[in-house]
């Protein structure tokens, strides 16, 4: 959001506000180019922004040189147009004698017309001269237009190149910030401790739910598992607990452990509250990461049949 300017109704200074706004924009954008600077960049330093293999860095100068009469690049200036009229064919450039010659030629003109008629030739040459003039005028106009278009194109290319460069810098900056935030979030999540003080009352409720809503603990657990350290530790811990449970049951019933079937005894569903392996402290130690296990992923050695669950794993 823009800053709150301190406002007194009698002392608003639009000039100052605009200065502040422009300063803010410059600060955000990093660098700001004026139109004059853009023109200069377009004319002089194109190679810094444009692909030199595609656009000539001295394009404008090159084109401008072409515009100049007899400019560089070896262009020969066009010949002067020949102004042709009906008197020209009889004319002479020899002063007084030339005028005499001209008059004689005119006198003899009827005689000449006995052999061929020069008038169509005169008319055609006259028209050709006009066409040449017109074509040169058109060429000049088109050339000026092309120059303008080219100039604008290069200017826009420069502007866009600068914008792309700025946007790339911003993307990099935002990407860096995102990475930092991500790492920070992970670091914060990793210090979240499982709090057994949530109490035994919470555990049966969680047990009853086959698919608990993912909370922060689960999210963190998934992160830890994804990091590659969670699954083996969990599997070993489960196996250790099961071994302890079996030993406990065997000792209590005077029977040897009977594999998975004993563990599936419905009588165990409520679980003895005094089962040492299920104390939170121990579970924390077993887990190794201080996090509760996920009932949906009990590990390969302890997968219960569908519809049954191991309360101790919750």
């Amino acid at each position: 959001m823009p800053p709150e300017f301190s406002v007194r109704s009698d002392s608003v200074d639009v000039d100052q506000i605009m200065t502040q706004i422009r300063a803010r924009i410059r600060e955000k954008r990093g660098v700001d180019y004026t139109e004059e600077e853009l023109q200069q960049l377009a004319n002089v330093k194109l190679e810094k922004f444009l692909d030199p293999t595609r656009v000539r860095s001295d394009l404008i100068q090159h084109y401008r040189r072409l515009q100049e009469p007899g400019g560089a690049s070896g262009a020969v200036p066009p010949p002067e147009n020949y102004a042709f009229d009906d008197h020209l064919v009889y004319g002479s450039a020899r002063g007084v004698s030339g005028r005499l010659i001209t008059n004689i030629r005119k006198l003899l003109n009827p005689l000449l017309k006995l052999f061929f008629n020069p008038n169509p030739i005169i008319q055609v040459l006259n028209r050709q001269s006009a066409i040449n003039e017109y074509a040169r005028d058109q060429f000049d106009r088109t050339s000026a237009l092309s120059y303008e278009v080219m100039h604008n194109l290069v200017l826009e290319l420069t502007r866009l190149s600068i914008e792309v460069k700025n946007l790339k810098m911003r993307v990099e900056s935002v990407s860096g910030r995102l990475d930092f935030s991500d790492r920070r979030a992970r670091a914060l999540e990793s210090v979240v401790q499982y709090r057994p003080g949530a109490g035994p009352a919470a555990e049966p409720a969680a047990t009853a739910s086959p698919s608990p809503a993912p909370g922060i603990g689960q999210a963190v657990r998934r992160d830890v598992e994804a990091a590659g350290g969670g699954a083996p530790v969990k599997g070993e811990a489960q196996r250790a607990r099961r071994r302890r449970r079996r030993r406990g049951r065997s000792a209590a019933a005077g029977q040897p452990a009977a594999g998975g079937a004993a563990a599936e005894d419905p009588g165990e569903a409520g679980g003895p509250a005094g089962d040492g392996a299920d104390t939170p402290d121990e579970r924390g130690r077993d887990g190794g990461d201080g996090l509760p296990f996920d009932g949906r992923d009990p590990g390969p050695a302890a997968a219960p049949p569908r519809g049954q669950s191991e309360p101790t794993d919750q």
């Binding site: 406002v7 109704s9 706004i21 955000k28």
Partner: peptide, 22 residues
């Protein structure tokens, strides 16, 4: 420019005291 349009319009909209004073 667009940048100035964004800033100035946001300022007028968000800062009622300034808008009112102007």
């Amino acid at each position: 420019s667009y940048g100035e349009f964004l800033e100035t319009l946001a300022l007028i909209q968000s800062n009622r005291r300034l808008a009112s004073a102007m």
